[in-house]
Simulated assay, not measured.
Amino acid sequence: MLERVRHDDVTLIEARTGAVACAFTERTGGVSAPPYASLNLGSHVGDDPAAVRENRRRVLAALGAEDLLDRLLVPNQVHGDHVAIVRSADVAALGAARSELADGADAVVCLAPDVPVLLCYADCVPVVIACLRGFAVVHSGWRGTLARIGASAARVLARETGCDPAGFAAFIGPHILADEYEVSEELIADFTAAFGAGVCAGPRLLDLSFAIRAALREAGVPDASVLDPQLSTVRSNDRFFSFRAEHGVCGRHAAVAVMRG
């Protein structure tokens, strides 16, 4: 289950599956000034780097992992389909992981205890997949969704951990919802060809979460194991950052996960 929990001034929508703790952040409780107010977790939007680091520290503290700030992994997201894998928490492995993530990745599969992973969003779809031996955090914009990046991450997680995807828990975080996401006729046609007519919520209205659930199903994750509370970044712009609602100038909320050893 996902539960909305306030930790001092930081509000998380969080879940725990075995040793894996994961959460989707809201936009309040941080130190960033407008237009990034206040819990901006993105380092690429023009915010003060010191404010971003403090905001990330606050999120980890709320998740009970403040002691792991120096191990935090945050990829350079490029709207691609690369899935990075983190297998160890030793210094050399983390250094190699940071180098790979700097080159670009939109999903991270982590098998290492005590290594938090954080990805940023402002309308794109956050996905966290958890099992007994690891987790994946996925950034699924329209390009990644069309490329089935969620399914790719689920398959990598299954291969690396030996766990059956039928036992996975998947969480879809706040994003732009189907009745808010108007796209081109060409893009609707591409998604309909890939996922069926159900991905179209109306004339030129695209349902990204429908496509993500379909891709996860193809990877062996049961529909009943995918939880999507349908939280809107556009309608709830007071709680979440929204690229569309804020006309392209805004901070980023996050999906974050860690497996404690």
Rank of each mutant, 00 (worst) to 15 (best):
A97W: 05
D67R: 09
V108M: 00
L68I: 13
L60Q: 03
I129G: 01
I85E: 15
G95Y: 02
L111W: 01
P75Q: 08
A89Q: 01
A96C: 08
V83S: 03
R98S: 04
D67K: 08
V125S: 11
A89E: 10
V83W: 03
C120K: 14
A130G: 08
E66L: 10
L73P: 02
L119K: 07
D103Y: 11
D114A: 04
L111P: 05
A122M: 06
A112P: 09
L94Y: 07
V83R: 05
A96Y: 10
R56F: 09
D106M: 00
A84F: 04
A112N: 05
A102W: 04
R58M: 06
R56E: 07
C110W: 03
D106I: 03
N76W: 12
L68R: 15
L118M: 15
A92K: 13
R53M: 14
Y121V: 06
A130N: 11
C120E: 15
R57W: 10
L68K: 15
D123V: 07
V52G: 06
N76H: 11
G64Q: 02
L72P: 02
L119R: 07
A130V: 15
R87M: 01
E100D: 13
A62Q: 05
L101G: 07
L94G: 04
G95T: 10
I85T: 15
R53H: 11
A65N: 12
L60D: 03
R71S: 02
V52Y: 09
H82L: 13
G64P: 03
V115Q: 08
